[in-house]
């Protein structure tokens, strides 16, 4: 059973294995530096006539891909924890309508991958569930329509703006290790639930700056709750702060006496080559952290190139209505410690 440490962290029993992952990305992501690690590449609309249906198709296809890899019947999955960026988690609902698996929809903006894995692992550690799937998606085109402007409207992006990643990533979590007995599998060691942070950055084109304090807050709380120092981890992988947010994060962390610069990397920085792909500050969206974690990082873990990873996905809790009504831009971040 999970044991609470400090105010925000829970240490798990060490048997929540990440047995398998799957991910499907769009063409731009495939062209990026991590292109070779993704399972499959599809057009951004996935052959559908609307962006929303396209994103739902991403979720459905990723779910099916994962089910194919683990060769389990859907009846054996206790629950799927899913989220995306669209209104009322539309893509998740449409994408999983035929899955015949109990469904919990989550919204944590770009932090949803960590949120879904966190919720799933806590449900499993209480012995209520044994097999779950955590899945998220985002889509550049549907996100532009939802949060910004029509695609064909001319305009410029500022240097701090981020590019929504078109991707869907899924993990299969189980209390039973799959594969050969001697094979090592990454497992979720502890989790930290983040608090909402509000540092009154009112620029919607600078999400990195909006989210960086929430990310620092969660990392600091995690380290303090479990009495650890940053060098406990081989890698502190933040969600999608991009170049701007990453720089700010390092500055806040060193202000609070923790230098993480040698072991920090950011999914938003990793997924695109900003210089040649003109993605400004980097990638964002729930698909960003999901795609990077389920492909490249999972592979490094399985090959024992990394043994301890703190995965901290960050999200900006905003809606277009909030922005128009002049509310502060809020941010959240959840942490998961993964070991092998």
């Amino acid at each position: 059973m999970a044991v609470k440490f400090g105010k925000q962290s829970y240490k798990l029993s060490g048997r929540i294995y990440i047995n398998e992952t799957a991910c499907i990305v769009g063409p731009r992501e495939k062209e990026g530096p991590l292109g070779e690690y993704f399972d499959q590449v599809e057009r951004e609309d996935y052959g559908e006539d609307t962006w929303e249906k396209g994103e739902a198709h991403y979720i459905e296809a990723t779910f099916n891909k994962l089910m194919g890899k683990i060769s389990l019947d859907t009846k054996q999955i206790d629950c799927v924890f899913s989220g995306d960026l669209l209104n009322q988690c539309m893509a998740s609902a449409i994408g999983l309508k035929n899955s015949n698996v109990p469904f919990l929809g989550l919204y944590g903006a770009c932090s949803t991958m960590a949120e879904s894995m966190l919720c799933a692992s806590l449900c499993m550690d209480s012995n209520a569930m044994t097999d779950t799937i955590a899945i998220t998606s985002s889509n550049f085109c549907s996100a532009e329509k939802q949060y910004r402007f029509p695609l064909e409207l001319g305009g410029q992006r500022t240097p701090t703006s981020q590019w929504t990643v078109t991707a869907s990533g899924a993990v299969y979590l189980s209390c039973n290790k799959s594969g050969a007995v001697e094979e090592l599998k990454p497992y979720i060691e502890s989790v930290t639930i983040g608090k909402i942070e509000n540092y009154k950055i009112n620029d919607v084109n600078n999400m990195g700056a909006v989210m960086a304090p929430a990310c620092a807050s969660t990392i600091l709380s995690h380290l303090r709750d479990l009495s650890r120092t940053p060098d406990y981890y081989d890698l502190i992988l933040t969600g999608d702060l991009g170049y701007t947010g990453s720089k700010i994060l390092l500055e806040i962390m060193s202000m609070h006496g923790n230098d993480i610069s040698t072991r920090h990397n950011d999914c938003g920085k990793m997924i695109f080559d900003s210089a040649s792909q003109d993605t400004k500050s980097g990638g964002s969206g729930c698909g960003c952290a999901a795609a990077v974690f389920t492909s490249y990082i999972y592979k490094l873990l399985k090959n024992l190139n990394l043994r301890r990873v703190l995965f901290v996905a960050t999200g900006a809790l905003i809606s277009p209505v909030m922005v128009k009504q002049g509310e502060d831009l809020l941010a959240i971040s959840h942490g998961i410690s993964i070991e092998i």
């Binding site: 410029q156 240097p159 701090t160 600078n206 990195g208 700056a209 701007t244 720089k247 700010i248 500055e251």
Partner: peptide, 9 residues
């Protein structure tokens, strides 16, 4: 901090 780290157009 945010201002000094955010690139300008």
């Amino acid at each position: 901090i945010s201002d000094s780290n955010s690139g300008k157009s």
